[in-house]
Amino acid sequence: MTQVPKVIGFICDWSVDLKPLSDGGRLRELPNVRVVQVPCSGFVRPDWLEEALNRGADGVFVTGCPYGDCLNREGNFLMRDRIDQLQRRLQRRKVDTARIGMLAFGLHDGAAFLAEVKAFVDRIAVLPPAQPARTAGRPAVAQPAGTPEGERT
């Protein structure tokens, strides 16, 4: 893969301190990584990760607090299990499991977090171009914003 992979990270508001790391919703050192702040890592619905991959993201990851220290007691454990399930589910559709990641970092672990994200991006960069995860029934290319995607609820 020649170009820089597009990565979306769902990051728990309570975990790693993004103030020194991010700028306008993107990591300063890795501008190809877009961060979405969520109230807890358990808030992330695995469908959204799949959706992001469908729309053309090369990788998605979720960051929670260190295991055992979730502010909401077990959000990161639940998310870890959900990510495992999602990886197994998407593996059957020939999506590489390296494209989905679960990280756990505390408030002061900014440097370790960046290193881990870099490793994650590097793992993705050497993969062959992504096949759409869901081949039938839905266009796999990125859709313009404002399509009925969000209006379903």
Partner: peptide, 9 residues
């Protein structure tokens, strides 16, 4: 959330 994802992509 999905709007942020779409914007990112």
């Amino acid at each position: 959330v999905l709007r942020q994802v779409a914007e990112a992509l």
